[in-house]
Amino acid sequence: MRATTIHGPGDIRFTEVPDPVIAAPTDAIVKVTGSCICGSDLWHFRGENGPIDEPRTIGHECVGIVEEVGPQVRRFKAGDHVLVPFCQCDNTCPNCQVGVQSACVNGAMTASGQAEYARVAQADGSLVRTEGVPDAATMPAMLALTDVMATGWHAAVSAGVRPGSTVAVVGDGAVGLCGVLAASVLGAERIIALSRHADRQRIARAYGATDVIAERGEDAVAALKELTGGVKADAVLECVGTDQAMRTAFDVARAGATVGMVGAPHGVELPLRTMFSKNIGLAGGVAPVRRYLPELLDLTLEGRIDPGRVFDVTLPLDRVAEGYAAMDERRAIKVALTPIS
């Protein structure tokens, strides 16, 4: 098959690789009908996740049609259209049972989402069926559910967003914007988005942000304190993963607040003295997508949320390298990829 492969920092190619095969009786092979590039893929693209010793496939967000299933798969059959959570799970292990499907003891990650086919481990526990094939209008939202919408939702849930609360969202990428949307759905009264980019600010406001702060660092903290009368935020969503973003998140959190962390951490040092002295908590981590997917799918189909608005560029799969460059250079918020014939 043809797939996106990474060969080194900044080196993305669309190449021929072996077809995925049923490796375990619980596997399924999915023909990818839609995929996209994630902000977390950029850590690899920029060389921030360590050396790439040999070329490998990349991409973990996709939807598609079941092509083949292993002998122990009972809930799905060839021809089913499905959402593929980026973190796969059996949905029955002790970790799954307490809602942490992202730490499933039999879990796996989608390894070739930006390709023609993907293997899904634990198909019965991972996949979520949709009615028919999403059309061009609904495909972006379906794609967003496989990662960024669920991850933004996880940030809001982990931070304890409640009706009437004041929420600050650090990060204006697709996850941060989905965090704004999640906070709105969960009933936050005031949602303060930290964003310096006009295109992202517009989506944040459309998703429910009541205020936007364009400053960074100490200036952002001062601006938020002024907006809240010095109280600061009841809940904070950290959707970046850098040390600066984490410091800002704790600096804008009121005493007793919780920071919901979903940005993949790189070089982060926690302010333990601040956490201790002000009773500020930290929760979150890798989003248990399968836990949230049924509710988020219902919200999407009911028209209550449209997470697909975070996609502002669509390219055919064989131009995937252009998509990586556009996101890396912040010329795109999130890039959708369409199959090629």
Results as ranks from 00 to 15, higher is better:
D90E: 13
T92W: 00
P94K: 05
N95D: 14
N95G: 08
Q97C: 14
Q97G: 15
G99Y: 05
V100T: 07
V100H: 13
V100C: 04
V100Y: 12
S102C: 10
S102R: 05
S102G: 12
S102V: 03
A103G: 03
N106V: 02
N106S: 14
A108T: 04
A111S: 13
Q114V: 02
Q114C: 10
Q114L: 03
A115F: 04
E116L: 01
A118R: 03
A118V: 15
R119L: 07
A123I: 01
A123P: 03
A123W: 01
A123G: 03
G125I: 05
L127Q: 08
V128A: 14
V128N: 06
R129E: 12
P134F: 04
P134R: 09
P134C: 06
D135K: 11
A136P: 00
M139G: 01
A141F: 01
L145K: 05
A150E: 11
A150G: 14
G152R: 02
H154S: 05
H154V: 03
A159H: 06
V161P: 13
V170C: 11
V170H: 09
G173M: 02
A174V: 11
G176K: 05
L181R: 14
A182E: 04
A182Q: 06
L186N: 06
G187Q: 08
G187C: 09
G187F: 02
E189D: 14
R190K: 15
I191H: 04
A193T: 05
L194A: 08
D199A: 14
Q201K: 00
R202G: 02
R205C: 06
G208E: 14
I213K: 09
E218R: 14
D219M: 09
D219C: 01
V221C: 12
V221G: 03
A222F: 03
A222N: 13
A222M: 07
A222C: 07
A223S: 12
K225A: 15
T228G: 08
T228E: 09
G230P: 13
G230W: 06
